[in-house]
Structures are given as C-alpha cells and as structure tokens.
C-alpha cells in the first residue's frame, strides 16, 4: 500500500475534505474559513497542492477524494529541528536572539542543573 506524506496544516485541511467530500470548492472555502480561518486564496493553494500530490481531484468546481485517510501520514515536520528560516526576518532574529547555540555538552550540564533543582523543589 502506497503511503502519502503531508504537512500538519495540510492534514488539518484534508480532514475537512475527507469529512465532507465530495464538496463544491466554494463550500469548502466557507468550511475552511469557519474551521481554520483560512482565506480563499489559501484554500485554493491547498487544493492545488493536494491535487499535485494526487490526494484529491478538483473537477467542475467539485473536490473529490482519491486517497483515503488511512493511506496518509503526517510528515515528520518537526520544525524545531528543521529550522527552516528561508529568509524570514522574525525567524532569523528569533534564532539569533535566543542564540540557540547549545552544544551537546552544554545541554547535558543544564539538564543536570535542572534535575538538581527539581529534587530540591
């Protein structure tokens, strides 16, 4: 069985599609606005992306499911570890300012420090 990997936010979008398909793209926009707060353009972007991945199809303004929920996995998008700044200023500054430059050894020492305090507290 082929499995598909998608991002968390896409999974949330797909949940709405699975629950309601087949559904008109206009109605899908309304649902997404209610449940996710997404704008129309965001919804159509998501539809296009899911079509490209072959999860759904959008014909005559109707969205149909091609791949069932069981075959889809949420991608391990642990963004903490990924640190995809890709030129974003807040992301860059955030990392810059928090100075996440812990070495393995440093982290270990801090862990010990915290554990010592937990026992005390």
């Amino acid at each position: 069985m082929q499995t598909y990997e998608i991002w968390d936010s896409e999974y949330r979008f797909m949940t709405i599609v699975w629950d309601n398909a087949p559904i008109g793209s206009g109605a899908l926009c309304t649902l997404c606005l209610q449940q996710l707060g997404w704008k129309k353009s965001t919804v159509y972007n998501a539809i296009r992306k899911m079509c490209e991945k072959g999860l759904i199809q959008n014909e005559n303004a109707t969205v149909r499911v091609l791949v069932p929920r069981e075959q889809v996995q949420r991608e391990e998008s642990d963004a903490f570890l990924r640190r995809t700044f890709s030129g974003s200023l807040p992301g860059f500054l955030n990392a810059f300012l928090s100075g996440r430059t812990l070495s393995e050894k440093e982290a270990e020492e801090l862990k010990k420090l915290i554990d010592a305090h937990r026992k005390e507290g």
Partner: peptide, 23 residues
C-alpha cells in the same frame, strides 16, 4: 521552584543542541 525547573526544561527542549549551528 519545582515549576521553574520544569520551565527551564521546556526552554532546554526548545533549544535542540543538534541544529543550533545555524545561529
């Protein structure tokens, strides 16, 4: 004090040592 130690642990978990070099 104990809760603050928990908070410190959260901070630590946010600062993964594996990918810090990008800073």
């Amino acid at each position: 004090k104990g809760e603050r130690a928990e908070y410190g642990r959260s901070l630590l978990s946010l600062a993964s040592p594996r990918h810090g070099a990008l800073s």
